[in-house]
Design a protein around this nucleic acid. Structure first.
Lengths: 245, 245
DNA sequence: CGGGCACAGTGATTGCGGTCACATCGTCAT
DNA sequence: ATGACGATGTGACCGCAATCACTGTGCCCG
């Protein structure tokens, strides 16, 4: 197994990874408190951080790597709810509301993660108002993202539209504004299918369609989105209608 | 128009509506602060509290009545995201994260609502840690509900399954445990369709099917769910298979 | 009373996309 | 090499549910 080398940072105050939007981007005092309660760990790809239904005994703050959050039904069907990036906190809503993790979390790319026990974390947001504010901000953002996904599922009338919407969200993450966007696809067709609630074969076919309509170029895992604007018109386009060549 | 009589309660500390799970169920000190910043108002059915995309200038705390949260696409298709009940706070994530309301809110049943301006509310959760905690709890709950809806959209393979899942959520709200559940349907077929992302006709047909399969009895707006357990089996049942009579 | 209107019920038609089945290709470990 | 295995392509089939077009029903209001 080829493990990318992770440069572990044990001391939060000295951590160069802290950026805007990071959960751990709080006042120095709070960071000191955080520093003594956290447990730093690393995980290889494929590890499970937690599983749907398990008692939630703490939160995971993602320093490096990426994590897939998903849920699945009894018959094995999977829905990917979110791909977490560095700076995000996982399991927050679970330790507050449910007591059980409501989703499963699997490591996609090797991760460094800080774990904080449920009780200690709740103490932290109780005592430090800036941490509480960060928690509110992060939950609001997660909530917003969830609604975006519901919109995609409910309002888009064709699967092509859903795929186009998903690609546009990739553009937002990667894109440097407007114009063509080039990015590396870290997902298999199967995973893409699970994100938009369709079948693997349909994703394969749609990617072919998009190529033929010259919306995208796809070579291996290199995806080039020619024009986000044209993709946007696919999202709302009525079923079946295709660009005429 | 027949307006049900709302008994308005202007003074939060004396409000008999406060119950567990209510956002306004906070310490006396916090409640006093809240009391001076809030603006109480009433709205008839059909009023719009706010509309998707508007700048979010405050939160609405629902004291009495019910509110429909929805979003719609350019071509007029609607998805109902949530039916808010007394005790809930609306627009919280918007004033924190986006600056714009991310959904539209329409009054279904006549409401009493307390409004608090954005800045004053942010001050409140900054200063009062118990209010901040309440905010975190409510956002967590909303987040959880949103994921439930995504699950319903993504994991259920038939529309019948989605409708059954929706009815089960009604049972959870109304039901006194197990066994048959009787409730009043405050929704039209069209609204039900918008909740589960299908067409009005399909809802009508499915309700007929459910009646024929003796899963439910429906007379006017009185809905009797005979056995939630049997409904649950519809949720996961493979497409097309129906109970044999 | 008779229009107007929203909601509900129903048939006919059609096409999207799920599913099954199988071929291909690249990448491993042996 | 070779075989195993996962990821992609691609064809054929067909069932569900969207859509269109009505009819029927209850309710309000002039």
């Amino acid at each position: 197994m080829n493990l990318p080398i992770l440069k572990i940072e044990h001391k939060c105050p000295e951590c160069g990874l802290q950026k805007d939007g990071f959960f751990c981007c709080v006042s120095d005092d709070s960071l000191d408190l955080f520093q003594v309660t956290k447990i730093t760990n690393t995980y290889p790809a494929g590890s499970m951080l937690f599983i749907e239904g398990q008692p939630a005994n703490g939160v995971y703050i993602l320093c490096q790597g990426s994590v897939k959050l998903y849920t699945c039904s009894q018959d094995g069907k999977v829905v990917i709810l979110h791909i977490a990036k560095p700076g995000e906190i996982l399991g927050l809503s679970a330790i507050v509301a449910g007591g059980e993790y409501e989703v499963s979390a699997e490591v996609l790319e090797p991760c460094q993660i800080n774990f904080v026990r449920r009780k200690e974390f709740l103490d932290l947001i109780e005592k430090r108002s800036d941490v509480a504010m960060r928690a509110v901000e992060h939950l609001s953002q997660q909530y917003y993202d969830a609604y975006d996904q519901i919109r995609s599922f409910g309002l888009t009338n064709s699967v092509a539209g859903k795929l186009a919407a998903l690609m546009l969200s990739w553009c937002r993450d990667t894109g440097n504004g407007y114009g063509a966007v080039r990015l590396k696809l870290p997902f298999t067709h199967e995973e893409i299918a699970e994100m938009i609630g369709t079948s693997r074969e349909t994703v394969t076919r749609l990617l072919k369609d998009f190529r033929q309509d010259e919306l995208i170029t796809l070579k291996g895992s290199d995806l080039l989105i020619h024009d986000p604007e044209r993709l946007r018109s696919v999202v709302t386009r009525p079923r079946g209608s295709r660009a005429r060549s």
